[in-house]
Simulated scan of single mutants.
Amino acid sequence: MKKVILFGASGNIGSQTLEILKANTQKFSLTAFSVGDNDKVIATILNDFKTVKMVYANNVQPELQTQFPQVKFIKTDVTQLLNEPGDLIINALSGFFGVKVTLAALQQEKIVLNANKESFVVAGALIQKLLSQSQQAKIYPLDSEHCAIWQCLEANQEINKIYLTASGGPFRTKSLAETKKVDLVAALQHPSWNMGAKITIDSATMFNKAFEILEVYHLFQTNKIVTLVHPESIIHSMVEFVDGSIKAQLSVPDMKQVINYFLNYPTRTSFIGQKNLNFEELVTLNLKIIDQKRFTPIAMAQACLNENNSLAVALNAANEVCVAQFQANKISFYQITKLVQQVFQDCPLQVLQTYQEIEEFDTLVRKLTEQKIREEMS
């Protein structure tokens, strides 16, 4: 029986993880979870999983403590959940907030199933350092593209190139000028995946793919990364080896496939609701190298490779601020990329070696981004 701690239980990845855990109670035991502001789901989760001993939430209704006296409710430090027994730590938190969870779990030499790509974007070098210092700590990517690369890799084989696929989002056929008319409703309509608002908007701007490039760079220790637009989202990524052969991982777009794969790694098992590719129907696969002039976030991510990590921290921080302002109808969809690029170009190159240095620089960049937004609006 593997004990599981789930960070971000109420999000898209978290809720799908709970579905898999609920269907496999003979194999997994949930001991702790976090939900942030979404306290309405706490009672349902606790009723489904009697093994939970600790819950992190920003708001907890008094009646919950009475209804579940065996559970400790906390709201000050989300990493306190790691005090509970956990063989597998699932980090499904969104944004910079989730970085400290990844680092704390690796410091405790845990196995981390990580959906928080910001961890690698801003602290990739720190993660690799922690992994090198421990024989037990491991990190597995809960992301369809990175999971695909993981499955394609062969031991002791030199990578010639990694092909990272991207659906291209809902505006892949629009010019930059045409995106000036995009509103929030349109930006939240992803053609392939059902995701939270932040990551859906990032997919529309292509910042999500930019962050995935940096995640590939740190996970697989290579800068030989090519991004391909693949609207069908069936090929999740490919690896090219030095002899010219290419291995690809294909499946119906479904994050449960990824979650289930790493929950049971290295054994493959089926899961409830699984859908297989049907080759009795015509399966068309379109692949094309992405235009970095059209999708400048890809170019910015490529510029971060082999560069001081302050550049990647700035990229993430500026984007988080701009996406929040777009959701609040303070700036337009088009301005997200424009403003992030301005901050990115002005970013001082520094080596940030500790989480504290990263956090301080992140705070500085957010203030600078907010200032640029005020200047843009004035």
Rank of each mutant, 00 (worst) to 15 (best):
S94T: 15
T337D: 10
Q345Y: 13
T222Y: 09
S29V: 14
L30R: 09
G11W: 01
E158S: 11
I201F: 03
L82W: 08
A317G: 00
H146L: 08
L176M: 09
Q107K: 07
N276D: 14
A123H: 00
T44M: 14
L368D: 08
I246K: 07
S15V: 04
N58D: 14
D291C: 08
L93I: 02
L368P: 03
G196F: 03
K224S: 14
G244V: 06
P253M: 07
L103P: 00
N276L: 11
F120C: 04
E240W: 04
K53E: 15
V122A: 01
L153P: 04
G36P: 01
L103E: 05
A186V: 02
P85I: 09
K256C: 09
A303I: 05
H190D: 10
I90P: 00
K72F: 05
A314E: 04
F7I: 01
T165Q: 04
A92R: 03
W150V: 00
Q274W: 04
L82V: 06
G124T: 10
A210M: 05
E376F: 08
P348Q: 13
A92Q: 03
S245K: 13
I235D: 10
T337C: 14
K75G: 15
V229W: 07
S29Y: 08
I235L: 04
H146M: 06
L250W: 12
A57K: 01
A204C: 07
I234R: 11
V41Q: 05
A328Q: 09
Q61N: 10
N316V: 11
I225K: 03
Q327A: 11
S378Y: 12
K40D: 10
V239A: 00
I149P: 06
L250M: 14
M255V: 13
Q356P: 00
G95I: 02
E232Q: 15
I298M: 10
A137N: 02
N38D: 04
E281Q: 14
I159W: 00
E360N: 13
I89W: 07
Q26M: 13
N194E: 13
K53V: 13
I298R: 01
K209I: 02
L82P: 06
E281K: 12
G86M: 06
Q274N: 05
N208P: 01
F262L: 03
F220P: 03
I234K: 06
N24P: 14
Q302V: 11
I373A: 07
F207K: 03
K256W: 09
A210V: 06
Y334L: 03
H236D: 11
T179E: 06
Q350N: 13
A187G: 02
N260P: 10
C347Y: 12
V216S: 12
Q292K: 15
K247V: 14
N114P: 04
I213P: 02
K75T: 12
N329D: 13
Q133N: 13
A324N: 07
E215N: 06
L88D: 05
P253I: 12
N223D: 14
D87F: 10
L364N: 11
S310F: 11
V351D: 11
M377R: 05
K198L: 04
A318E: 04
P141V: 01
M1I: 15
I225R: 03
K209T: 02
L153E: 00
V121G: 05
Q371A: 15
G169L: 13
L82C: 08
Q335N: 07
S270K: 12
L176I: 12
V78L: 07
T79Y: 05
T200D: 10
P170D: 11
T66H: 06
Q80E: 15
L106Y: 08
L277A: 06
D202L: 07
Q70S: 10
